[in-house]
Design a protein around this nucleic acid. Sequence first.
DNA 1: TATGAATGAGCCTTCATTCAT
DNA 2: AATGAATGAAGGCTCATTCAT
Lengths: 190, 190, 190, 190
Amino acid sequence: MPKVIDDVEKRIQEAGIKVFSVRGYVDTDMKTIAKEAGIAVGTLYNYYPSKKELFFNILEISWEETFFQLDKIANSQKPLDKKIDLFVDILYKEINKRQGLGFELIRFNNTDPQIKTELDKINQRFEKLILVLIQEADSEEAEHKLLSEEAKLSKLVVLSLLVLNSDCEKEQKKDKEFLAAFVKRILYLD
Amino acid sequence: MPKVIDDVEKRIQEAGIKVFSVRGYVDTDMKTIAKEAGIAVGTLYNYYPSKKELFFNILEISWEETFFQLDKIANSQKPLDKKIDLFVDILYKEINKRQGLGFELIRFNNTDPQIKTELDKINQRFEKLILVLIQEADSEEAEHKLLSEEAKLSKLVVLSLLVLNSDCEKEQKKDKEFLAAFVKRILYLD
Amino acid sequence: MPKVIDDVEKRIQEAGIKVFSVRGYVDTDMKTIAKEAGIAVGTLYNYYPSKKELFFNILEISWEETFFQLDKIANSQKPLDKKIDLFVDILYKEINKRQGLGFELIRFNNTDPQIKTELDKINQRFEKLILVLIQEADSEEAEHKLLSEEAKLSKLVVLSLLVLNSDCEKEQKKDKEFLAAFVKRILYLD
Amino acid sequence: MPKVIDDVEKRIQEAGIKVFSVRGYVDTDMKTIAKEAGIAVGTLYNYYPSKKELFFNILEISWEETFFQLDKIANSQKPLDKKIDLFVDILYKEINKRQGLGFELIRFNNTDPQIKTELDKINQRFEKLILVLIQEADSEEAEHKLLSEEAKLSKLVVLSLLVLNSDCEKEQKKDKEFLAAFVKRILYLD
DNA sequence: TATGAATGAGCCTTCATTCAT
DNA sequence: AATGAATGAAGGCTCATTCAT
């Protein structure tokens, strides 16, 4: 009794993002994802060879969406100050949507060698973005020595967002203000 | 550092720190801890009702040790600048020793409501420490508005350490310099 | 050797022989056979109702080929001694080509009642062949009492070939000599 | 609710022999063995790390028992003729008890490299036994050339027993007579 | 008729937890 | 209080089979 299903891959991805986001990697099982996607477990394995591979793909897709939005802002003609505000805004919202996904990213980094590659991709995208900001900052006030190690900086920014996100929902506005100020502080813009 | 009276309890804790640190929560099983502690699995359950409870206790103990050292520095008469360097030094070393413990802290925060309490304790201790630094900074240069939300700040510092730690081993010295500069930057000390 | 009319059916059979021979029944899956045959899995089921049925058919086909060759020799005018040598030669080669097929034959015999029929067909063909040899032997030297239970004898011969085949590749020549001597011994021809 | 069970290992082995014998390796699942042994599945894994390991052990145990009996006969003072009769008798009975076990032995030989070792052990034991018979035969009538390749011979004898066993139950007496004659024939004792 | 994605029962294995000793 | 064997639910994954196109 095989059904005919439209956009299976997309449905898997959406189900994956949803479930992994809420429960994290370990507490998510394939049956749950399948049910959420409205398909059979076996079907999952027609698209991804393993739970891990599925997760990594979900992770990538998820960040892809975010980067798409961030890139648009980075390439816009808005003033740096405004860009940072928007950056924080988007990152905050996106990361908030997929809590578990972000954390697993950190967790895996500690246990699974394969994820290093996955992480590197994401980090590199991020570094580029931060670099743009930093270069814009430099042209205005050119002197950040140690802190200019962009790779580390970019990680910290993401992490900061992850952590603040895990707190209560009510203070979102405050959180964002704080983060924007934080980033500007780091970039010597205040 | 509260003296652990019972010999068995202490052995469990030490074994727990050791194993959880290396493997993280999920990849650690009770048998391994028992073996490491030189006792039987059943005995574990005479002291802790569940794996989770055991883990939370381990987590607390583990930070306890770190805070003991940090407090000493905070209360010392060293100049603020020096204090920060030592802080970063100790935190870096301690966190490095217990990778898995730190990451799980983040992971759990997302899935388990019970850990919030555990985390709060740790965070509160941290906030106090950061507060001390900030107050010292203020007395020297009194003007950090938004950033003064200590709670958030303290989290960011810990997180920063976690993340940088997960990278390669070789750059430890550089990492620490970066972090110290980072903290000072945030505290308007540069 | 019955001509296979349909192209698809033949391709399935050839693929089946190839794959089952190498991997045996359990380790072969329908997808692999389909791929090897260059058709879709579904098509397999248009020709055979189940994997087992497919296997049994493959088995039959496979022996069919062998018997075709053996019959030719049995019906030839060569001396008995020469016939036996050729028999062993062909059987050895054929069985060697389809390891997995032979073993499964034994395996199934133990678990599946349906295969009995399949086996019986093969055995009967074999008995006839052995009978021919024995009768020729008898006319020369007429006295094998107990051993003349052809049915059993024929099985033993095939089995012997199966077993010796599973050994190393290097000793093929020796093996064949041994087997020929073995058969002659049994038939009181030495 | 862990029960206290006596002789778990023995019960596992007996259950294993029973189930594997009837169903063979592939068609046997761990749950069935556990149920047959009256224990939980997990308990199985307290004694054997995997299904395969369990099977190999069962195999070994099973033959051990048989060899114990065969050795006794080989070392007795009975006449060669009588020994052979007893050999066949015991082998026939033992192999009959554990159909599937024997066949899997052949099957695995074809697919799993690890079993080669297992098989070698059994074969070597067998060769020794056959050697004893052959040497006794030789001292009486010393001339078997090609057939004296004991290794191959011993395999054929076991195989012969396996195959004849798989037939109907009614002819047991006849089968045994046939086999004894067969062995004697091979050993030039008739 | 051919296709191949969908199905889901079922397998091996793990491991936190229990409890008779 | 300590032991560690027993437990069994649960998870990842496979694959013969079906059926809408």
